[in-house]
Every structure is written in structure tokens, then in C-alpha cells.
Simulated assay, not measured.
Amino acid sequence: MKNISAIMAKATAAVEFMYDKKATIKRHLPVVKKSGADGMDWLPVYADVPCRISNPALNNTDQEEANTIQYDVKLFLSSSYDVKAGDVVIVNGEKFESAKEPFKYVSHQEVMLLRKGYA
């Protein structure tokens, strides 16, 4: 009987064929400013990452003083990328916040993201 991981690894090409978007993944990292002072900044750790997004829930607006947009998005990408909780993910110009810990599989990984903004 074949190893299930080897069988799933063969599915990777088929899964990645469906990636129709590109993502940039940024992380809050230490930097040295021009003045020589230590600081933190959002720096890209990956660019042009092939991916696909899915919106499992369509509850996307709250009407209060300001109409807020807030919804969860599931990001699908290769399991070879190291996505961490707290990373900022920009997909085709749209910014998502609060990346949670990814669910990694042999063929891909899934990361839940939160899109926040104002209407």
C-alpha cells in the first residue's frame, strides 16, 4: 500500500493550477532606522505568491456610526511558505489583517484572514 503523503504530494500540481491571484506577505520585523535607532516595520517576506482566496461567510457589514466592513477569508497557497499569525497579507491590492496559524497539508496550506475596512 502506498504512503498517503506520497499520493497527496502528487495532488500539489493540480491544487496549484487553481491559484488565480498573487499575494504579498508582510511581517513586523526589527529594522535600523537612518538615524541608527532600532525600530519595527512591516517588511515583505514573500512577494508574488500564487494563491487563491475563498470567502466562506458573507456577513460583511455592520451599520453603526460608521459602516464597517469585516469578513473572514480563507487563503490557499503552497505549503512551502512560512506564514505566521499576525502577518499582513495583500492579495491583488486588498489588505487582510490578523493571519491566524495556518493549517498545513502535503499539497497546500489554508490560512484564515480577516478583512477590515470602512464602507
Rank of each mutant, 00 (worst) to 15 (best):
M1G: 11
K2V: 10
K2M: 09
N3G: 00
N3D: 13
I4K: 07
S5F: 11
I7A: 07
M8Q: 12
A9M: 05
K10G: 10
A11S: 10
A11W: 08
T12Q: 15
T12V: 05
V15N: 11
E16Y: 11
F17C: 08
M18P: 02
M18Q: 14
M18I: 13
K22S: 10
A23Y: 06
I25G: 02
K26I: 04
H28E: 13
H28T: 00
H28V: 04
L29M: 12
L29G: 01
L29T: 09
L29V: 13
P30C: 08
V31C: 00
V32N: 02
V32A: 03
K33Y: 04
K33C: 03
K33F: 02
S35N: 14
S35Y: 00
S35V: 03
S35M: 02
G36L: 05
G36H: 06
G36D: 12
A37F: 11
G39F: 03
G39Y: 02
W42C: 09
L43H: 08
V45W: 02
V45Q: 03
A47S: 13
A47G: 02
V49Q: 05
C51P: 01
C51H: 02
R52Q: 09
S54H: 07
S54I: 05
N55Q: 15
N55V: 14
A57E: 15
A57R: 09
A57K: 10
N59G: 10
N59D: 15
T61D: 13
T61F: 15
D62G: 08
Q63T: 13
E65Q: 14
A66N: 10
N67E: 15
T68R: 11
I69K: 07
I69S: 09
Y71G: 06
Y71W: 07
D72Y: 08
V73S: 05
V73H: 01
K74L: 14
K74M: 14
K74V: 15
L75F: 02
F76A: 10
F76L: 10
F76V: 05
L77Q: 02
S78M: 05
S78C: 07
S78Q: 01
S78L: 05
S79P: 09
S79V: 01
S79T: 06
S80H: 10
Y81V: 09
Y81A: 05
D82Q: 08
D82A: 12
D82R: 08
D82I: 12
K84E: 12
A85R: 07
A85G: 10
G86C: 04
D87V: 01
V88L: 13
I90G: 03
V91P: 00
V91T: 01
E94H: 08
E94V: 14
K95R: 12
E97Q: 12
E97I: 13
S98F: 15
E101G: 03
F103P: 00
F103L: 14
F103V: 15
F103T: 14
Y105P: 02
H108C: 07
V111N: 02
L113S: 04
L113R: 00
K116V: 10
G117K: 04
G117T: 04
Y118D: 04
Y118R: 08
